[in-house]
Design a protein around this nucleic acid. Structure first.
Length: 483
RNA sequence: GGCGCCAUCGUCUAUCGGUUAGGACACUGCCCUUUCAAGGCGGAAAGACGGGUUCGAUUCCCGUUGGCGCUACCA
């Protein structure tokens, strides 16, 4: 085997997910154990959803986890650029090759036609798959449509017959009938490649030897293998990792649970504990082995063949236990203080809090009760506190629901944006801001009176605010319904 | 609907045909202790169902059921 190279390729379309850290960890462990390289690549081909802010946070949180990469958009490397949006020329070139070899074709079909086709296929009990209409066009016909300015995408050719065998390092061979594999779009009408083209081209050019990725990619593996074949390249070894689950076994999702790495950081989990916990979900401890282990140990004992294939529940109580062990067994008082400072008492944060709190206290001893909410995770709430002179509990519930949506849509989390979001909530409810503020104060700070709301929310961070808002809605909707 | 993946205590898992089915979290009893934690010692708790194969199946095969993923010009 040559030099082992693995990668993690997050899409900067939102807050970094613990699943991303899980996948990154596995790739990291394998590369480090083999003395190979671990690469970070940003998959930002979705121009509408990708943001620089998201990319920045992803890099920051993966570093916080202690997972450092040898090549990436920030550190460079011999196979860059490591941001797909900067590699358009490369993809264009390879798409042209496929077009020339007849392994891809231009497709002019409208979304309406495609939709109709899929509806019919489903009704007929057939797999959803492009019917190949545009493949039948002559070169002249294609040229005519192009000249007429019709927009098109480039699709890959998929055989109509035969089967594809995907060799998964852990699951063994997985068979797919080509009839059930769609002729995927490779290049969108905006000229950007889709994941399928970009990931194959990049993995090859970046000399990736092993790909550990989420299970959601299993069914598109045949397309990727086909592309490697069309290009005449040797595909990397593949292994699909299980998807982390909610307690109810559904895929871990933001709607049901906090999934952001930032949330766990804001809650005061230590990165070592989080990573250790994720490592246990990849390689469980043997009997008699201590489950508390540092990254070096995690790397040393990592075994591909021990990674489970069933989706494990992200069991927060166990994370709590591990985190508690790190706090009491691994932090001396000095380090403990340092961690507390990093978590919520940085000089900057304290200075900002001082500005907000000083005008509102009479004695320094008022600080404890005034600011406790800034140093807490979830807070205890009572439904009755949400109602004010202008709004009852039901109206408060509506306001909070709306606020949750508006706040989630904010691209950047700061007091200014939060203010505008809440003003939108007020106006869409035809209320004054001060009326909708009350339930928000209660949900966020635990009290109808506190230090300024928008700053408080910025200080608390998006994840904790979302959690408190959700918690508030829970409290409000679990009210006993009068008979 | 189609295609694919998966299936052991509540949760994470061990077992690679023969075990009293083991460990960890959570739960719980007792001990320790100025409280609470922590810690120590115990306890309860599992092979989805139905067929095969086999002297013998949690383990191998098939089916059912269930969960999950994909089914986009998102990744």
């Amino acid at each position: 085997m040559g030099n082992v190279r693995t990668r993690v390729a997050p899409s900067p379309t939102g807050d970094p997910h613990v699943g991303t850290a899980y996948v990154a960890l596995v790739n990291y462990c394998f590369a480090r154990q083999c003395g190979g390289e671990f690469i970070l690549r940003i998959e930002d081909t979705d121009q509408a959803r990708s943001t620089a802010e998201s990319e920045r946070i992803i890099l920051q949180t993966l570093r916080w986890c202690g997972l450092d990469w040898d090549e990436g958009p920030d550190v460079g490397g011999p196979h860059g650029p490591y941001r797909q949006s900067e590699r358009s020329e490369i993809y264009r070139e390879y798409a042209a090759k496929l077009l020339a070899s007849g392994d891809a074709f231009k497709c002019f079909c409208t979304p309406a036609r495609l939709d109709e086709m899929r509806v019919a296929q489903r009704a007929a009990g057939q797999p959803s798959r492009y019917d190949g209409l545009c493949r039948t066009y002559s070169a002249q016909e294609v040229a005519r449509r192009e000249a007429a300015g019709e927009s098109y995408v480039i699709r890959m050719v998929v055989p109509d017959e035969g089967t594809c065998v995907v060799e998964d390092l852990r699951r063994g061979p997985i068979e797919f009938d080509y009839k059930s594999v769609d002729m995927q779009v490779l290049v969108k009408s905006d000229g950007m490649p889709t994941y399928h083209l970009a990931n194959v081209v990049d993995d090859h050019l970046m000399k990736i030897t092993h790909v550990f990725r989420g299970e959601e990619w299993v069914s598109s593996a045949p397309k990727h293998l086909l592309l490697y074949r069309y290009f005449g390249w040797e595909p990397p070894k593949l292994m699909h990792l299980p998807l982390l689950r909610n307690p109810d076994k559904s895929k871990l999702s933001k709607r049901k649970n906090p999934t952001g790495i930032l949330f766990y950081r804001a809650m005061g989990y230590l990165p070592e504990a989080l990573v250790n916990f994720l490592a246990l979900l990849a390689n469980a401890a043997h009997e008699g082995e201590d489950e508390l282990m540092d990254l070096a140990a995690i790397v040393r004992r990592f075994r591909v063949e021990h990674v489970p294939i069933g989706g494990p529940v992200f069991d927060v109580p166990k994370l709590d236990w591990l985190n508690a062990r790190y706090i009491r067994e691994r932090l001396d008082p000095e380090t403990f203080v340092e961690r507390v400072r990093e978590w919520g008492a940085s000089p900057d944060r304290l200075a900002r809090i001082a500005t907000l709190a000083a005008p509102r206290i009479e004695r320094l001893s008022d600080l404890g009760s005034l600011l406790a909410f800034l140093f807490a995770g979830r807070i205890a709430l009572r439904a009755a506190d949400f109602a004010g002179k202008k709004m009852n509990e039901e109206q408060a519930r509506q306001a909070l629901t709306l606020a949750l949506t508006e706040l989630d849509a904010l691209p950047v989390w700061n007091a200014f944006g939060i203010q505008s979001a809440i003003e939108r909530v007020a106006s869409s409810l035809d209320r004054k801001v001060r009326d909708v503020a009350r339930p928000l104060y209660v949900a966020i700070t635990g009290s109808p009176t506190s230090i300024p709301l928008y700053d408080s929310m910025e200080l608390l961070g998006r994840d904790l605010c979302r959690e408190r808002l959700r918690n508030a809605l829970d409290v409000l909707s679990n009210q006993p319904v009068p008979a």
